[in-house]
């Protein structure tokens, strides 16, 4: 199966319909395993039970950046290769990415209060993630503001690629600036600096979040294809009615 095969929306609808129930089942199973591991994990020697917020906060943070990266690839697909599903993928991903970013911000705030003594601080990591959330809202607003899907796609693709500059800023903000947020403890050059008893539940929850994204993204893409078919049928009908 190549990308060319998937470029046909009808074929994509057929394939995704068959895959969706499997992805949904895998998501439920992964969350059952992940949450079970998360709530059986030992307390951290410094943070106590609040470390359980990490199993939610970190996967949401990873996904918030991953979804923007997916949208950036889709933006290239729109602007360079004119792939017919690229802008469908980008438009469908934006609200899901915004939801993950919101979970990251809220859970981080609720973790920060007992650990740092504050819900919020304007440090580089927190501020750059807030900027990411605002960019998601901006892209969603842009898609809704322009009626013609192909014009909206090009404008949103440019905004998405410009916004991708924020991804390395988020990732390395804790190294480039003096922040209250701790540096990376999993994705490090010299390997994870986190005990396996906490790392495995974290990875299980990350897998569950990834599968959730996959399931919701495929469903939202199918919705968007249906919306365009509906629009096409309405326009064709209006055109034939006007010509008659």
């Amino acid at each position: 199966m190549t990308l060319i095969n998937l470029a046909n929306p009808t074929r994509f609808m057929s394939l995704s319909e068959r895959a969706l129930s499997w992805f949904a089942a895998a998501t439920l199973l992964a969350f059952a395993v992940g949450l079970n591991l998360a709530f059986q994990a030992p307390d951290d020697y410094q943070q106590g039970a609040t470390v359980k917020i990490m199993f939610l906060h970190v996967p949401a943070a990873w996904l918030s950046m991953f979804v923007w990266a997916v949208m950036s690839l889709a933006a290239l697909g729109t602007l360079v290769w004119r792939h017919p599903l690229a802008d469908v993928a980008a438009k469908a991903a934006a609200p899901i990415g915004a939801a993950f970013t919101l979970i990251c911000l809220v859970s981080g705030s609720l973790w920060g209060r007992p650990m740092w003594g504050t819900y919020w601080v304007w440090d580089a990591r927190l501020t750059s993630v807030l900027v990411l959330f605002l960019m998601y809202l901006g892209v969603i607003a842009l898609w809704r503001a322009v009626e013609d899907p192909s014009r909206a796609a090009r404008a949103a693709a440019i905004l998405t690629l410009v916004g991708a500059v924020n991804l390395p800023v988020i990732k390395w903000s804790v190294d480039w600036w003096n922040t209250l947020h701790q540096p990376a403890s999993v994705m490090r050059v010299d390997g994870p600096a986190i005990h396996p008893s906490l790392l495995w539940p974290l990875l299980a929850m990350a897998l569950a979040f990834f599968l959730l994204f996959l399931t919701l993204h495929l469903t939202a893409m199918r919705n968007e294809i249906m919306r365009r078919r509906l629009r096409g049928m309405q326009l064709a009908h209006a055109g034939s009615a006007a010509g008659a």
């Binding site: 609200p95 939801a99 809220v106």
Partner: peptide, 25 residues
């Protein structure tokens, strides 16, 4: 532990966000 409210609020708010997203789609 003593910060149970924060843990429950974090998981509860995440569940609400995910449920709203699923319902909307």
């Amino acid at each position: 532990g003593p910060h149970a409210t924060f843990i429950i609020a974090a998981y509860g708010s995440a569940a609400v966000v995910v449920l709203v997203l699923i319902s909307w789609i």
